[in-house]
Design a protein around this nucleic acid. Structure first.
Lengths: 223, 223
DNA sequence: GTCTATACATCGATAGAC
DNA sequence: GTCTATCGATGTATAGAC
């Protein structure tokens, strides 16, 4: 691996690690899994390459051959797991505009989204990214883009269409999406951001989301 | 300083550092200022006691005499600066209930609160606390308590009173407060959490907060 | 590509003089 | 209380054999 390939990055500044070659893929995946676990529990600075070496079962030199150094390993691992985690929810925005019962559709959509976001592993990853933003600003950009733009975009289009059709009256669709997300998902996420041991209570989840959607509809639904 | 005094903590687990004695107070303050700056820029793990020593101008042994170890220094510094930063905003809740123009009062209150919360130094402190929650859960509890309960409590009482008076119709005042905060402050805070260089645009701040308050009033104001 | 062994720096914390 | 000097551990990263 020459110096140029070693320092290549994509448009977000996430390192591009050269592709597969043989069964060294399994070792690479073992390194990634071990590194993610170590980074999640220790943070970037306190995580040690020795610990990742022991967790992964490969030698330390192999890790450096594959990822170059600690910073690039961190960026590759966190930047790689992020889009893959959120891949399941992206296509649900377009169904909102055609739903027969808008209120039920909004509740269903925000509930799914909230359940995903409140998963303990995702909350931990979020805290890790937030805490390391000064060191890795690219990850902050990537996180915001993956978690919000991916869903806010289709939802904004849906509201624009519903406004044109007369079902909703939304002068600023992008802001309305932000408000809907904040009033549902955001309320619960705030609590879980600062408390690691709080369980997700199903009854409260339903109560908060329903109330948030009704808050949204009270302002934007046409009479 | 004996072992018992050295390990004393208050109800949140924040170390209690023995009181003043002489002009060693200036050295202690210099240590606190230097430590806060170092922790904010480097995080807990990457911050070095050597760097804090150099920043503060005192010797490393003096720091250990005053604060015991790195963990206690961190807890004392972060746990100490937090309540003091938020001290200015706590008494504004009771004025909401008596305001002649409720909409204007809500806009004024949430605007002040948002301006405080979006200050770069407070956003940095917030990221630091979030990133170190696994290591210092007490700070997460303290942060949530200081930043939210302190303002949510009086606001909840105000909404309860306004409900009894018939100005508002709020079946769940505590949830309504969370929604108001999320729809105003929360929308802007989310963006600045993941981006360090984004400036606070006055026009957008006014636009988002006004729209958030109107969203709130559309649901909870009586006709 | 993968390993073992190691170089070299920096870390948190302390001993002992004053 | 405050300093200088230092200890032992651990960190990242690499050299060289296979």
């Amino acid at each position: 691996m020459d110096a140029e390939t070693m320092n290549a990055t994509d448009e977000y500044g996430i390192p591009i690690i050269p592709g597969p070659s043989d069964s060294a893929q399994r070792k690479r995946q073992a390194i990634i899994d071990a590194a993610l676990a170590e980074f999640l529990t220790e943070g970037y600075s306190a995580a040690s390459m020795d610990a990742i070496t022991q967790r992964s079962g490969v030698s330390k030199a192999t890790i450096y051959k594959h990822f170059g150094n600690k910073e690039r390993l961190f960026l590759a691992v966190v930047g790689g797991v992020l889009p893959q985690t959120y891949a399941g929810l992206q296509c649900c925005g377009s169904t909102i505009a055609q739903a027969p019962d808008l209120r039920a559709a909004l509740i269903s959509f925000t509930t799914d989204w909230t359940r995903l976001v409140l998963r303990p592993d995702i909350m931990s990853l979020r805290r890790l990214v937030i805490g390391e933003i000064d060191r890795f600003p690219q990850l902050g950009q990537l996180w915001y883009r993956v978690t919000y733009d991916m869903n806010n975009g289709p939802l904004t289009e849906a509201f624009t269409e519903l406004d044109a059709r007369g079902t909703l009256e939304v002068p600023d669709p992008a802001l309305a999406v932000q408000q809907l997300v904040a009033a549902t998902l955001g309320v619960l996420q705030l609590v879980h951001t600062f408390s690691t041991d709080t369980e997700v209570d199903e009854a409260e989840l339903s109560r908060v989301i329903t109330s948030g959607v009704d808050l949204f509809l009270a302002r934007y639904a046409t009479a």
